[in-house]
């Protein structure tokens, strides 16, 4: 009795998903969108970010560590469930499964993406428009990135819905239905931003 550890960890998991990870995803996709205005615009956005003070500290504190925790605890939670979607084909049950599936896909995608960009930068490569254009010159990578971006965006959008329930903000069915619609609008909007940005490199 009186073991509140998993309660606290779960609260932390949902909180980190939105702040800072969700905010970071929105920021990242928006910054990438600069690529639609040409290589110079994208490169100057990258330059601006790279000149931020305490960059490494911010990267670890607001991006790497939260994502690592969210991913590891999320995997633990996902594999605790036994999906029963063939038996119960309700909308929210499908979302339940998709949330877990997209979470795993996003994790694989992010790990690969970090390897291709941030870790290569640590090895001395320069992050710029050409780097992405080079990565996306491979048609397999275009598919991989598109699936990865859509998974991440879905996971975030539907995650907003779960966050609102988990923190007791949307309690009744009406507010939850409204949040469902809102989360799908976020999904469509962010997917547009993410995919447009990606295809700017192709």
């Amino acid at each position: 009795m009186a073991n509140k550890k998993s309660f606290a960890l779960h609260k932390l998991h949902t909180l980190l998903g939105l702040f800072p990870i969700g905010l970071f995803v929105v920021f990242h996709l928006t910054a990438n969108f600069q690529a639609t205005k040409g290589p110079e615009a994208f490169n100057s956005a990258v330059q601006m970010i790279e000149h931020a003070p305490f960059l490494l500290f911010l990267e670890f504190g607001l991006i790497y560590l939260p994502i690592l925790f969210h991913a590891i605890y999320g995997l633990y939670l996902a594999f605790q469930g036994k999906p029963n979607n063939s038996q119960f084909k309700y909308y929210r049950n499908q979302m339940y499964l998709l949330q877990r599936v997209t979470g795993v896909i996003t994790l694989i995608f992010v790990a690969w993406h970090v390897w291709q960009t941030r870790i290569q930068k640590a090895f001395g490569a320069e992050v710029n428009f050409d780097m992405m254009a080079d990565i996306l010159s491979n048609p397999f990578m275009i598919v991989f990135y598109a699936v990865g971006i859509l998974s991440a965006v879905f996971h975030l959008s539907n995650g907003i819905w779960s966050f609102l329930v988990h923190w007791g903000i949307t309690v009744g069915p009406r507010s939850q239905r409204f949040a469902s619609i809102f989360s799908m609008i976020v999904f469509v909007a962010l997917s547009y931003v993410g995919l447009r940005a990606m295809f700017a490199f192709v």
């Binding site: 609260k11 939670l77 119960f88």
Partner: peptide, 16 residues
């Protein structure tokens, strides 16, 4: 506590 409310995964099959 362990096994309590935070283990809900919001599949909402229960209410259906």
């Amino acid at each position: 506590d362990e096994g309590g409310i935070s283990y809900c995964g919001n599949s909402q099959n229960c209410v259906m």
